[in-house]
Amino acid sequence: MATYILRRVVSTVAVMVMVGVFVFLLLRLAPGDPADIIAGPRATPEMIAGIREQLGLNQPLAIQFVHWALGILGGDLGTSIFTGRPVLELISQRLEPTISLSLLTIILSVTIGVSFGVLAAWRSGGLVDRILTAFATLGFSVPVFVVGFFLIYLFAIRIRWLPVQGYQPIDHGFGPWVVHLILPTVTLSVPYIAFIARIARASMLEVLSEDYMRTAAAKGASAYSMLFHHALKNAGVPILTVIGLSFAGLIGGVVITETVFNIPGVGRLVVDAINNRDYPIIQGVLILVSGLYVLINLAVDLSYTLVDPRIRY
């Protein structure tokens, strides 16, 4: 297993190098120039050229890339073109809201999604199954921003239980933190609950039709024992895969939710950076996200051994 983990970590580095090259070139080849945007709409070409020179954007691409890559190796993601602040500082300022939202979303999605899936499989073909399947279809089909605005209208404007927008750091108190995250978490969770529920249901249905489940029933095992001790563990691998994919997909999903609920997270940071062509921020966030993505995949692969002893690395 240690060899496997080592091999995967090494491949993570290779993936990040490829992502780095790709992101760097993609940004430079895309239309738009931070110097144009800094100079403002009324700048003359000479002013823009001066700013390009000050920012080093007139240097050959290879030299710009080497500077950036050497910085990363030294733990420096560069400096934001617009704010003049270190990218690492800007990202760390925005990490807490994004991590909070992602973790709460994955906890809620897994808890409800797996429960719904198990319940629907247990009552397959019945009213509960049909209701949950309809919810899953709806949850998967309705865009996140529609759910978000609906919840804002209902809970923040009409009955005024929850705030419309904003974020409170957890060190300002658990209450304000969680209150500000309820609506965004529910909003972001809806498609993931639907996704996980559908996969969990399908996987559970397959396992429940196995001979050993019939044997367990014949031996008098309770419904709880059959579902949670026998079936769920055997249905676990595809469910874990989906949870891993969902967690990785959340990284993209938070952008819309952070915008709708005005949460100052990494998603908003990177969208603003794209609009401003603030290359160092975009590159820094994408490098971190790609590393995180690969590590989540590794964690999911390793977690298979916990639910299926036949899997060995």
């Binding site: 605005f149 923040a156 404007i157 419309v164 927008q165 709708v260 609920f261 005005n262 969208v271």
Partner: peptide
Amino acid sequence: IADQQTAFAA
């Protein structure tokens, strides 16, 4: 506040 609808709701 990037989204105008959110700003209005707030």
